[in-house]
């Protein structure tokens, strides 16, 4: 960590994504009732919470699938209005959905380039797309796929997951959001995906990882945000928290140890120093 004295606070890069007071209703269902989330470049931010806490809904709002009913979204410090998925793509937001959102009747290459096909004139540039897709899959150490021209329907769950992730990293994205990417995977493939998540962050991207698995969360996350019944209970630095604390937040929405919990500041700031000294909370 750099010495805060050499850094004026305004030189600290703003978070890649910041959500303040996000609200979303589905008719009478209050899915999100005040959500704050900060995702910083180079960090994995875990988003945890019980079933139905609103994690997927939050992600879909960020991706432009739904619109927040109220609240503020800042992208790289600038207010952003993400009206539809293509706007999110333009900003550099890529999402790997819980249900993966692949087209079973298209092959791997077509799925990876869906909506952003490479063209030569009006024709699809199949060769270049195929080559780039193969390169990305290779860089993710995907070896199990027989041919990248096979239909996605014939892939295993883990392979589909990798295609969905490869689709997200194919583009020069700034923020990659993964909704329970390891839920359906075996031990080896889970490990591969987690390593991949870590590599994405180490490459300077902001990564948001939704997971129910505390092992996964503590293995890769720098920061943990807990949702409780559509509200942000706390966002904490992973290094300063224990599983017990997180699990308590998930199940009851607050900690016995008390104290208001707020968004942690960026590492490298004076506040961050404070953060590490004073434990998990900071006024």
């Amino acid at each position: 960590m750099t010495d805060p004295a050499t850094h004026a606070p305004d030189l600290v890069p703003p978070p890649t994504l910041e959500v303040r007071g996000g609200l979303k209703n589905f008719g009478a269902v209050h899915a999100l009732r005040g959500v704050d989330l900060v995702a910083r470049p180079g960090e994995v931010t875990a988003l945890v919470g019980d079933n139905g806490a609103g994690k997927s809904t939050l992600i879909k709002c960020i991706a432009g699938i739904y619109a927040f009913d109220a609240g503020e979204v800042l992208f790289e410090g600038q207010p952003a209005h993400i009206a539809d998925p293509s706007k999110a793509n333009e900003l550099g937001i890529e999402v790997v959905y819980q249900d993966l959102a692949l087209c079973d009747n298209l092959d791997i290459v077509h799925n990876m380039f869906l909506g952003r096909e490479l063209k030569k004139g009006i024709r699809l540039d199949e060769s270049t797309m195929e080559r780039q897709a193969a390169e990305v899959l290779a860089s993710l150490s995907v070896r199990t796929v027989r041919s990248i021209r096979q239909h996605v329907a014939s892939l295993s769950g883990g392979q589909r997951q990798t295609v969905a992730i490869a689709r997200a990293v194919l583009w020069n994205s700034k923020l990659v959001i993964l909704d329970e990417p390891t839920a359906a995977l075996g031990v080896a493939q889970t490990e591969q995906v987690l390593q991949l998540v870590r590599r994405l962050a180490d490459a300077g991207l902001a990564v948001v990882l939704v997971s129910h698995n505390m092992n996964d969360v503590f293995e890769v996350a720098d920061s943990i945000s807990v949702l409780y019944l559509g509200q942000t209970a706390a966002q904490l630095r992973a290094a300063d928290t224990t599983r017990a604390q997180i699990i308590e937040l998930i199940t009851s929405g607050s900690q016995e140890s008390g104290g208001p919990v707020t968004v942690p500041p960026a590492p490298g700031t004076a506040a961050a120093k404070l953060d590490t000294k004073n434990g998990s909370t900071q006024a």
Binding site: A63, P85, A101, N105, L106, H110, L114, L124
Partner: peptide, 24 residues
């Protein structure tokens, strides 16, 4: 078979929601 529009037609038939999320 050779244009992006054609590909999107197949995509809509395969999974309309995924197509929408892809920004089409």
């Amino acid at each position: 078979t050779r244009t992006a529009f054609g590909r999107h037609i197949y995509a809509v038939g395969g999974n309309a929601e995924a197509t929408r999320r892809a920004g089409i």
